[in-house]
């Protein structure tokens, strides 16, 4: 057991029993009082944590267990599942070219988000970390896309990107008419368009985290470097950015998990026809299309288990190799 400088009370049943000689009545009374105290402590622990544990188990863990069970059946969702098919739903998924497209799209989004958002966010965070008048306002404006609902963002960009819409008109007026594409209809273009929309939406989140990391860099360090004659860029390059390592790794982790299960913006922005051809499908949209809307419940649950397994393995690998020291084992529970 780990004992920190917290509540000083009899810890567990063993130490609650009297250690000294049980000769006087007073000691016995004392012991029974302590036992009552221990019992009360456990009532409190159980009473205070049970509601949270119950709701967490019931709505987070139990459904995932059911998904594994349902995934072994061919099932239209009516009555209990009866037609056991073993692992066939899984093999079917990996034989479906649309699902493989969805996997590829998720990979594009995971790596595209990391490679594009990371440098952009770092640049903007360094910029907004400089002291200048009006900085607070600029920070507020940069965060705006992040707080908007995904649905709103999706519909907004869908309208902006329609054929001969605002984006096209803007490009033409800038003399860049040659760049105009069927942004959301061209099967080869749509996933990159969606990646751009996702970047617009989520780069603010990376900036928020990086600014927090920057605020932790002691002024003394950058001031000392400045006194030694380092330029602004040299200070960023050799002092500030190396100290951001933990923040960058945590952002990478959160971005990766988010990218693997991305649904809302894809679903709203891309046309169902394009999605059903695989050009803009992700694992999550594929799962909802097949499981919920096409009522292939067994199959949909198999996709859910695959999505879960991929995310979980990716998370554990990331934890193991990159995050170890950063969250101080908050997730693996090794620290403390």
């Amino acid at each position: 057991m780990t004992s920190t400088n917290q509540i000083r009370m009899p810890a567990g049943g063993a130490s609650a029993s009297p250690a000294g000689p049980r000769t006087t009545g007073r000691a016995a009374a004392h012991a029974s009082a302590r036992r009552a105290e221990t019992r009360r402590k456990w009532y409190e622990i159980i009473g205070l944590t049970t509601p949270a544990v119950l709701i967490y188990v019931m709505f987070v863990l139990v459904p995932m267990g059911f998904a594994v069970y349902y995934s072994l059946f061919r099932w239209r969702g009516v009555g209990p599942p009866t037609e056991f098919v073993g692992l066939r739903n899984y093999t079917l998924a990996f034989q479906d070219p649309i699902f493989l497209d969805a996997l590829r799209n998720n990979a594009i989004i995971v790596f595209g988000s990391l490679l594009i958002q990371g440098p952009i966010a770092l640049g903007i965070a360094l910029l907004l970390n400089r002291r200048f008048r009006g900085r607070a306002v600029f920070r507020l404006l940069v965060f705006v896309p992040y707080v908007l609902a995904e649905v709103t963002v999706g519909i907004m960009w869908k309208l902006l990107l329609t054929g001969d819409g605002t984006v096209d008109a803007l490009l033409r007026s800038l003399g860049l008419g040659g760049l105009v594409q069927a942004w959301l209809a061209d099967l080869d273009v749509v996933i990159w368009t969606l990646l751009a929309v996702l970047t617009w939406k989520y780069v603010g989140f990376a900036i928020i985290l990086l600014l927090a990391g920057l605020s932790n860099v002691p002024d003394e360090l950058t001031e000392a470097a400045a006194i030694d004659g380092a330029s602004w860029w040299q200070i960023q390059r050799h002092v500030t950015i190396p100290l951001l390592g933990p923040t960058i790794r945590i952002w990478m982790f959160l971005s990766m998990i988010g990218s693997l299960q991305v649904f809302d913006i894809i679903w709203v922005t891309s046309v169902p026809a394009v999605r059903s051809l695989g050009a803009s499908a992700t694992m999550a949209t594929y799962m909802v299309d097949n499981g919920f809307f096409a009522r292939l419940w067994g199959y949909g649950n198999a996709v859910a288990v695959i999505l879960f397994a991929i995310s979980f393995v990716a998370a554990l690998l990331f934890q193991r190799f990159l995050l170890r020291r950063d969250i101080a084992g908050a997730i693996t529970g090794k620290a403390k």
Partner: peptide, 12 residues
């Protein structure tokens, strides 16, 4: 729960 992809469990 922080590792858990919430979207994955939506069908069950």
């Amino acid at each position: 729960g922080l590792l858990f992809p919430a979207g994955a469990a939506i069908l069950p």
